[in-house]
Computed example of a mutant assay.
Amino acid sequence: MFFRWYSARLAARPLLTQSVTTAVLFATGDITAQQLVQKRGFENHDLTRTGRMALYGGFVFGPAATTWFGFLSRNVNVRNKRLETVARVACDQLIFAPVMIGVFLSSMATMEGASAKERLDKTYWPALSTNWMVWPFVQMINFTFLPLQHRVLFANVISIGWNSYLSWVNSQ
């Protein structure tokens, strides 16, 4: 029932639906980081931090990922489907991931009133290198088995754990 409702929203307003979904799941990732990883307890939960993650997910990452996946689908096309998947993953990991990790870290620093340069100097390479240990495999699955309209949702569900990591890295 939920999946049918979600698919209808996705068909009617894809960018809005993917952006709202991303905001909710980015917030979920931060809640996971604070409660399960950092074990802060609900009385010490930083709601502002969760709000920043939701804001970034909904207004930056959701629209960017939706647009990016559409771009890859339209422009990276090869007759050999396995090679096409590898080419899309390579583009994703060598173009999109490095840019978006930088955008994430600098956006969070700016929203926190901290130095974006210092945050990037301290956390960019560890975050990107960890990304490359996780996301190529995830995107191989995503680009091989999921239709375009469900790729952002799949990435966002996997991102609950990834965003927990990014939220934790960002807070260090």
Results as ranks from 00 to 15, higher is better:
I31M: 09
T32D: 05
A33V: 04
Q34L: 02
Q35I: 04
Q35C: 05
Q38P: 11
K39Q: 15
F42I: 13
F42N: 12
N44L: 08
R49T: 09
R49D: 06
G51N: 01
R52F: 11
M53H: 07
L55I: 10
L55Y: 05
G57Y: 00
V60L: 08
F61I: 11
F61V: 12
G62T: 02
P63K: 00
A64L: 05
A64Q: 03
A65Q: 08
F69S: 00
F69L: 06
F69V: 04
G70D: 08
G70C: 08
G70L: 04
F71P: 06
R74Q: 11
R74K: 14
N75H: 13
N80Q: 09
N80K: 08
K81I: 09
R82D: 14
A87Q: 08
A87T: 08
A90V: 15
A90Q: 09
D92L: 01
I95V: 15
P98W: 01
V99C: 10
M100E: 08
V103K: 02
F104Q: 01
L105M: 04
S106T: 11
S107C: 13
M108L: 05
A109G: 04
T110A: 14
M111W: 11
M111I: 10
M111C: 08
S115V: 04
A116E: 01
K117T: 13
R119E: 11
D121P: 07
D121K: 11
D121H: 12
T123R: 15
T123N: 14
Y124S: 01
A127D: 05
L128T: 07
S129Q: 15
S129K: 15
T130L: 07
T130I: 08
W132T: 07
M133P: 09
V134Q: 04
W135C: 00
W135H: 02
